[in-house]
Design a binder for these strands. Structure first.
Length: 809
DNA sequence: GGGAAAAGGTCAGTGA
DNA sequence: TCACTGACCTTTTCCC
């Protein structure tokens, strides 16, 4: 192989034989970061340092890295950089010492086993030059006096001084199986009394350099380029050994450990599972340059699950809806092909025997970071609970790809491909779940076809918040993609998407909502406006209290915090409940004023909606203060904890189970303060409440607010929106669990009864009343709102005599 | 201090 | 429009 020499820059210039790039084989322009590389690989290594942990190769780390293919796989390119000895601590500055240069030039005449040499003198030149510079670079990482402080130091291996074999070894074993590399022509001195012509002092670290390195070693034991690591303790070590100590591998391990588990509680048992209408079958796509996510199939949400709402699972029989119309909380679009099994594999995928019926190609198509992907057997999902979703589908593997949690030697890998036709074929297969990551998360060029956007957009949803770019606790593990996408997100946050100049009528009716449906642009603008209006109102109502509680909540959530049971008596509790109920009802009424169309409803419907939503809204507002694990309710105003054991004095087990369950589901969504406001509003205007008259208008209002929330999520955090919206709709579908509780336990009683006795919610109203009749009238509570004649809508729609459900805060 | 060599910055080109 | 690449340039470091 012919080698192009660097162009001499002046008279008498002795060109240093950098030879070929040790990474890709192109012409090297110098010794960069410890290895002779081309400008491209130099720049690539420099750019990759902060983000290399995002690189993953799913093809066994065996990709060819040549000038033509080097941009196809970042992981392999970076790996080769490291193998070549590139590292920040291998940096050298200044000219190459004359002696080294002469040795390198002398080496031209010798033989070589270098893979690029093919036994020619030029090859030897490359090898010796590389080794010579490698000597110099890595020598700087050694002890200042060059003495061997390694207990096992001796021979070629020496402490802190690069072993030329190691780099050559790494280099050659990656490429071919030729004979081992030759011994170095000029091993660097390990001791100051070496006979080597090059003065050891030339390679000494400056005092400052040495100090820095000592610090580095303290923070990252073994944080050296593999060339120096390879010989610690004497003798050569394998490349794998080098990697074990290299920060590249170390940090991957740390990250993999850190990212174990997911915030959505995968692996926990869900009382109910829904089936069908899920993510894998729904088509989302990115639209326009804004990055907004929207459904490709338009606005309709006609898709329903098989029975309209719940699908029985093996574990629980879902509740039947007691309400009339059931809002459709599916994403719409293509019906999922994934069925939920009743036995065995909880992934929702058919058994291997079922696969055989479809030609043995059934499986889970998983796209991963870096653009790779493949078809996996259903067993894959069974062995990866962290990527399993409650409905049996598989999460995108992007997170695993980013965190290094994924084993590229996945035994269940059936087929590699991200080819569009393969994915489409997989989608057509009724037994196949398809999960494709967000195109923007692909690590860039991978030499593979980009997954078509019209198939699906998915993205990781469970990267811990403290790893996201804006979080204070973030570290360098934040990926370049996250940086990039976060930049995009921030840009969108400040962007006035729409709605700024839109005016929503004071009393929008069916006609108005019908017009919106015909005008997508207007609908988007109004949706954005709706989001803002409701969020602003919510901030007015709850903001101050929420801010005041933040400190205590943080304190209570800290590991050091030891909660103390409330010392309040049941009578105290009744007083607290009394005050909180009054406040709660006022707030709900206030919030309802901000919902477009609510004022248009007649008084009876307003009344019905308000009186039935109190528990729902309270759940949303208080979910974050219900910590299932601690089984505590935190009353932030009074800085008091109420242990569940204590609460059981008032509330039945199944009621508490439901409350904590719903709270967990809400918390898992990690909705923002504003998004929670929209969720409250959606629950206020539920068309499936009993006794409603104008169901059509209520449905229109409900859907409008729902769309506003989805739009708000998609606009404010486009990366998370598909998964978040999906999870959100799943939450709404499961909300009927709380409805049952409310109907069974809350509706039959009122606060006056609750306030009077040591009885439990869950007993019948009559029994409660009979108990209460035995007690005095102490604490008798009037449900307040009925006497306050709270007005909704410019004073023309009085909501009087709210027969408030008993609410326990 | 001159000059060599590498780090780091810049920006046009490229592809998605 | 954006991210990425890499050739080219400037700055910094250090040998002579």
């Amino acid at each position: 192989m012919e080698m192009d020499m660097p162009i001499p820059k002046g008279r008498g210039f002795t060109p240093f034989p950098f030879g070929q790039c040790q990474v890709c084989g192109a012409e090297a322009t110098g010794n960069h970061y410890g290895a002779n590389t081309c400008e491209g690989c130099k720049g690539f290594f420099k750019r990759s340092l902060p983000v290399f942990r995002t690189f993953r190769c799913f093809f066994g780390n065996k990709c060819d890295v040549t000038p033509e293919t080097r941009n196809r796989c970042k992981a392999c390119r970076f790996r080769k950089c490291v193998e070549a000895g590139m590292a920040l601590d291998a940096v050298k500055m200044g000219r190459i010492p004359k002696a080294v240069k002469e040795h390198a030039m002398e080496g031209k005449s010798g033989g070589s086993h270098h893979r690029n040499s093919s036994g020619t003198g030029l090859g030897r030149q490359i090898s010796s030059a590389s080794q010579a510079t490698s000597h110099m670079a890595s020598a700087r990482t050694g002890s200042p006096d060059g003495a061997d402080s390694s207990p096992g130091g001796g021979g070629m291996g020496n402490n802190g001084i690069s072993s030329p074999e190691s780099s050559a070894d790494n280099f050659s074993r990656d490429g071919d199986n030729e004979s081992p590399p030759p011994p170095p022509p000029h091993p660097m001195p390990r001791n100051s009394n070496s006979n080597n012509a090059t003065p050891v002092s030339d390679y000494r670290l400056t005092e400052e350099q040495h100090r820095r390195q000592q610090q580095q070693q303290q923070h990252y034991p073994g944080m050296n380029a593999p060339t120096s690591l390879s010989t610690q303790g004497g003798g050569m070590k394998s490349m794998a050994d080098n990697y074990r100590f290299h920060p590249y591998a170390r940090l991957q391990q740390q990250q993999a450990h850190h990212f174990k588990g997911d915030r959505n509680g995968n692996g926990v048992s869900y009382p109910y599972q829904s089936a069908g209408g899920g993510v894998s079958g729904d088509r989302l796509q990115t639209g326009g340059s804004s990055g907004l996510l929207y459904r490709a199939d338009g606005e309709q949400q006609q898709q329903q699950t098989k029975n309209g709402q719940w699908q029985p699972t093996s574990r629980n029989q879902p509740p039947q809806s007691r309400m009339m119309p059931v809002p459709d909380y599916t994403l719409g679009g293509r019906q999922s092909s994934v069925t939920t099994t009743t036995t065995g594999d909880q992934t929702g995928l058919k058994s291997p025997s079922a696969q055989s019926e479809t030609g043995g190609k059934s499986g889970v198509f998983v796209a991963m970071g870096g653009g790779g992907g493949g078809l996996f057997s259903p067993a894959f999902a069974g062995r990866h609970p962290e990527v399993r979703m409650p409905n049996g589908r598989i999460r995108a593997m992007a997170d695993q790809a980013i965190t290094g949690d994924f084993n590229e030697n996945e035994p269940d890998l059936m087929e590699h491909s991200t080819a569009p036709e393969k994915i489409k074929a997989a989608m057509a297969n009724s037994e196949t779940a398809v999960v494709v990551m967000h195109p923007a998360l692909q690590g860039g060029t991978h030499g593979m076809p980009v997954v078509p956007r019209d198939i699906m957009v998915f993205q990781p949803s469970y990267v811990p918040q403290d790893k996201l770019p804006d979080s204070p606790g973030r570290d360098s593990a934040v990926t370049a993609n996250h940086h990039r996408l976060d930049t995009k997100r921030r840009r969108m946050e400040v962007q006035d998407v729409s709605g700024g100049g839109v005016k929503i009528p004071a009393n929008p009716g069916m006609k108005y909502f019908a017009e919106l449906a015909q005008n997508p642009a207007l609908k988007t603008a109004v949706g954005e406006k709706t989001f803002r209006v409701i969020a602003a109102k919510n901030a007015d109502i709850y903001g101050e209290e929420t801010r005041a509680n933040e400190e205590f909540l943080r304190e209570a959530m800290s590991a050091k915090y030891v909660p103390k049971d409330s010392e309040q008596t049941p009578q105290d509790m009744r007083d607290v409940l009394k005050d909180r109920l009054i406040t709660q009802v006022k707030r709900v009424v206030q919030l309802s004023e901000s919902i477009p169309g609510f004022r248009t409803l007649n008084v009876d419907d307003q009344h019905s909606l308000l009186r039935t939503c109190i528990l729902d809204v309270w759940m949303v507002h208080s979910a974050r203060f219900l910590r299932d694990k601690q089984s505590y309710i935190l009353f932030l105003e009074t800085r008091t904890h109420y242990a569940r054991k204590w609460m059981e004095l008032f509330l039945t087990d199944d009621f508490l189970d439901t409350v904590f369950f719903i709270a967990d589901k809400i918390n898992a969504l990690d909705l923002s303060f504003d998004e929670l406001a929209l969720l409250k509003s959606i629950l206020i205007v539920r068309p499936d409440r009993p006794g409603l008259q104008n169901i059509a208008l209520i449905t229109a209002i409900h859907n409008h607010v729902l769309e506003a929330l989805k739009l708000g999520i998609a606009t404010r955090r486009p990366l998370e929106s598909p998964q978040l919206i999906y999870d959100f709709l799943e939450l709404l579908k499961g909300w009927s669990v709380l409805d049952l509780m409310q109907e069974k336990y809350v509706h039959p009683i009122d606060l006056s009864q609750m306030a009077q006795g040591p009885w439990k919610i869950g007993e019948t109203a009559s029994s409660a009343a009979s108990v209460s009749s035995k007690s005095s009238d102490a604490g008798t509570v009037s449900p307040c709102p009925d006497k306050q004649q709270m007005l909704v809508g410019e004073g023309k729609a009085p909501v009087a005599a709210l027969k408030t459900p008993a609410i326990e805060t």
